[in-house]
Design a protein around this nucleic acid. Sequence first.
DNA 1: TGATTTGTTGAACTCAGTCCAACAATCCTA
DNA 2: TAGGATTGTTGGACTGAGTTCAACAAATCA
Lengths: 197, 197
Amino acid sequence: MTETSTPRGRPQAASRELLQDAALELFLENGYAGTTIEQITTRAGVSRNTFFNYFDAKSDVFWVELDDALERIPASLSTAPPTAGGMQAVEAALLEFGGQFGPGRVPFALTQYELVGSVNELQASALTRFTRQAALLADFLTSRGFERLRAQTASYAALGAVVAAGQAWADAGTARGDLLPYLSAALSPVIGAFADE
Amino acid sequence: MTETSTPRGRPQAASRELLQDAALELFLENGYAGTTIEQITTRAGVSRNTFFNYFDAKSDVFWVELDDALERIPASLSTAPPTAGGMQAVEAALLEFGGQFGPGRVPFALTQYELVGSVNELQASALTRFTRQAALLADFLTSRGFERLRAQTASYAALGAVVAAGQAWADAGTARGDLLPYLSAALSPVIGAFADE
DNA sequence: TGATTTGTTGAACTCAGTCCAACAATCCTA
DNA sequence: TAGGATTGTTGGACTGAGTTCAACAAATCA
């Protein structure tokens, strides 16, 4: 599977995890905006530029956990039976996505989602992710016979539901149980609206 | 209405319109990313810092026309008869918003919406606007008795429809007629899904 | 005339992100 | 055991948005 033999050149002095740990610590101590890339790399024991060997942007660290979960959506979509409707497949994929989170696993981005409202970099990176996923869903839906505008609208609406559910769940604080109930409640009217092809 | 008497201190050397004209010219000539604030202010005949007396960010110029139209939404919402459903009021407000655009009036942001995908500042500023409007709609819907999560989801979905319609309309190129048909097509399933209170 | 108000300017600064050339640590081959 | 190739790290210089602040300029008002 993964590369087992010893790698070729100079060994890595850092890793995504190392930098991520340093960064999240600092985000908690000084806030996202109050943390510079230099502080992150200093704590990780490498130089500033090395950061960009592992992440494209400071904001990428903010989203790592969500990104990992988002990555599986395409695979999840492709396992949908061709007999099921497009929207049902989307619903299943998004519920599978949401099923990964619970009281014991709250992605950092969600615990701090108010930040997205106030930090430019986070807004930009949030929208990047939203539009990427929307394009993914919309392509899938068009491949299932949806007309373009309808596919786009349905995708935006479904992802909007995911975001709303995530925020409501995060707002629920320590009392929150699983994300799933929030997600399926938010998703169901949207799926229903676009399901009848 | 507006201040009629002569203003007190030093007269303005610039104006939003002056800077906007200079900026949009340069955006067309060199692209958004290829235009610096300094170039804008130089063309407008003022100094760099003066730009920030009139706009909070370079990206604000990109959205001016849309911002102007968005400003009227709260007023539009408040004119809705209390007898009408919340979603009907939202639909009416968004259609009124969309009704302002046609082949003769295509906001700059829409003619160049692909840019939003590639320029960080534009992504951030786009999401700012999206969330601001969403908060507005959600507050309105909660005031009409919607439960929070439902209000948020419906707001995101409705605005998603607006965005999808705007993009589809922009994609239609010179052949496009009014925005309204696109908008009402995108909006109708969403309104229907959340209408039955 | 001088005080007040409002707007403009320049300078210095922070920080994310980019680019590039020098260098360091490893493995592989002869 | 010495080269070469490979991979990663580092430092330096740079761009450009956005912020802050103090100095200055142009107007009105008393």
